[in-house]
Design a protein around this nucleic acid. Structure first.
Length: 556
RNA sequence: UGGGGCGUAGCCAAGCGGUAAGGCAGCGGGUUUUGAUCCCGUCAUGCGUAGGUUCGAAUCCUACCGCCCCAGCCA
């Protein structure tokens, strides 16, 4: 570690000590999503943590689908999750695993508990069980079925397994302590009846283990040394440890908790994201405004930016709300370093160069990137008629306006200096064209009079360009905490979260832009071709994020 | 009011008894054929509050305050 590296966080410290003290010989982690929805930026923190730790300490990280509830899970999500983890840049250890791979073993362990007198079949209805459980401040009461014999329990559990009991009729519970201050220890349900097919095991089972009964044991089976989860599972740790202590498991994994990611101006609950999709506020789970990984990918966010962000925010046990500006910084930083440059005029204003021959076209070379010489240069056709941005021309302006002004000069990016000589307006008085003169002696050098124009604007040939549609995204929500307190997050959807511009003119090379490949449209922002809409003749470009804009910030 | 956590700048976050790292945002300046990038400077006499221990406390002790999580046959 250099003196410049980040200080270690608490999990890195724990792992280093465990490795040094011999508690574990090799680090083994796992990322355990439930396949019941799409991965989002919050999951990215967990993914980067688990896989990152394994890389850092020369260990392994498994991908395990925590699929103990067939009522909520689907194969579709399994595929999407694999795709997103891979996209983020991580490779899991061996094949993807499933908690359902261990259903046989888990069932045997349930039998073991019953034989030991540590689990029983309870016929309390869900409602009655709730009453017996007590409250946060009052202890619970023992179930009347708590003292059934092991033989009877074995027989009853077998009937549950064979489908002879109805859903909700009974459940298998661990016999721990109905008076425990920690509610998770008040005889938790470990197997429940669900007469439905499972996406991995088909109709083999009609009883399914609970999260608590499955997670720690699955960790043990896989030899996970550090089972990392979020804070809300801390109350489950005594239960996690109880199963590990009372079952003949092959290893003794330990659970550690960290604070999940919260981002302002963002919502990351599967239920709410689903609602945005279902009610048509967005175009789907992969809408570029969504915080899902598939949405961020479609928007043009590079996976490295998300990794950097996860590194930057740190790992602690304190609840926090990270400023989305930090994510935006990481995206800009990554894109600035790697995205090839291009020019695209969003709202075209025609410019005619009165002293440039009609029909003439010259090819001006332009660097692919201001400092990355490994990025290929591009050729820009320069012609008598051009397009510039409407907002880059004014008939009159103060000296702070560093663009084209009537009677003044400006530099065309990667090309010549021009001067605005005349304005042409339509009947409505709108400017529809600017007639300029070009100084052909300014390619790569200042004008002969030594007066350097203070502005540089982007442009595109009006005769050779790519007609395209550009989608400008803004924050999905206008409120920093759209779902805080009693607020209805839908009331805070930003009405201006999408602006669609058509008739935009991109430099000719953009015709071959590949979907999801980022460009910087100079002076504008970072864009990538949409992976869903658009045609070969008229591509659609998504704005990933704008450039920092100190001009706009001045209030101008 | 039971149990479990957490409080360091606008935000994230180091710090673990020796006198408050770093990053984001902000502000000021320099370079620049992107009002971008880059570079430089600036930004907590203060660590939830109040006491106490100590030569010395964000770090130890006590009390209080605030916020988060838990009463699914969800994960």
């Amino acid at each position: 570690m250099t003196s410049e590296s980040k200080p270690a966080h608490f999990l890195q410290n724990i792992i280093r000590e465990d490795l040094a003290g011999g508690r574990v010989s090799q680090l083994a982690t796992r990322f355990p999503p439930e396949p019941n929805g799409y991965l989002h930026i919050g999951h990215a923190k967990s993914i980067c943590l688990n896989f990152g730790l394994a890389q850092e300490f020369g260990g392994t990280c498994n991908l395990r689908f925590d699929d103990t509830n067939p009522a909520k899970e689907e194969e579709e999500y399994v595929d999407a999750i694999k795709r997103d983890v891979s996209w983020l840049g991580f490779e899991w250890n061996g094949e993807a695993r499933y908690t359902s791979d261990y259903f046989d073993q888990l069932h045997e362990w349930a039998l073991h508990l019953i034989k030991e007198g540590k689990a029983y079949v309870c016929h309390l209805s869900p409602e009655d069980a709730r009453h017996y459980r007590g409250t946060l401040t009052e202890p619970g009461k023992n179930s009347p079925y708590r003292d059934r014999s092991a033989e009877e329990n074995l027989e009853l559990f077998d009937k549950m397994k064979n489908g002879e009991m109805a859903e909700g009729e009974c459940s298998l519970r661990a016999k721990i302590d109905m008076a425990a201050p920690n509610i998770n220890l008040r005889d938790p349900i470990i197997y429940r009846i669900k007469k439905m097919a499972h996406h991995q095991t088909g109709d083999k089972w009609c009883i399914y283990p609970s999260y608590d009964f499955a997670h720690g044991q699955s960790d043990a089976i896989e030899g996970i040394s550090h089972s990392i989860c979020t804070l809300e599972f801390e109350d489950h740790k005594p239960l996690y440890d109880w199963f590990i202590a009372n079952l003949p498991v092959p290893a003794r994994p330990r659970q550690y908790e960290f604070a999940r990611l919260n981002l302002n101006y963002t919502v990351v609950s599967k239920r709410k994201l689903k609602q945005l999709v279902d009610e048509g506020h967005v175009d789907g789970w992969d809408d570029p405004r969504m915080p899902t990984l598939s949405g961020q990918r479609r928007r043009g966010v590079p996976p490295a930016a998300i990794r950097k962000f996860c590194e930057m925010i740190g790992v602690t046990r304190s609840d926090s709300v990270v400023d989305v500006g930090m994510l935006e910084y990481c995206i800009r930083d990554e894109l600035d370093k790697n995205a090839p440059r291009a020019m695209c005029v969003m709202e075209p204003l025609k410019v005619t160069l009165s002293n440039y021959p009609e029909g003439r076209e010259e090819i001006l070379p332009a660097p692919g990137h201001p400092v990355r010489e490994d990025l290929p240069a591009r050729d820009l056709p320069f012609t008598r008629t051009l397009y510039i941005e409407q907002e880059d021309f004014r008939e009159e302006a103060n000296k702070k306006y560093k663009r084209l002004v009537l009677g003044k000069k400006v530099r065309l990016r990667n090309a010549y200096v021009i001067q605005a000589d005349e304005v042409i307006k339509n009947d409505a008085g709108e400017i529809i064209e600017v007639v300029c003169s070009v100084d052909l002696d300014t390619l790569g050098k200042d004008p002969a009079d030594g007066v350097k124009p203070k502005g540089v604007i982007h442009w595109v040939s009006a005769e050779k360009n790519v007609d395209c549609e550009v989608r400008l995204y803004d924050r999905l929500f206008s409120d920093p905490a759209p779902d805080a307190g009693g607020k209805n997050f839908l009331d805070h959807v930003n009405p201006d979260n999408l602006q669609v511009l058509s008739g935009c003119k991109g430099e000719i090379g953009l015709a071959s832009a590949a979907p999801e490949h980022s460009y910087q449209f100079e002076r504008n922002g970072y864009f990538c071709r949409d992976n869903k809409y658009g045609t070969a003749e008229k591509p659609v470009f998504n704005r990933t994020i704008g450039l920092r804009d100190s001009w706009a910030k001045m209030g101008e």
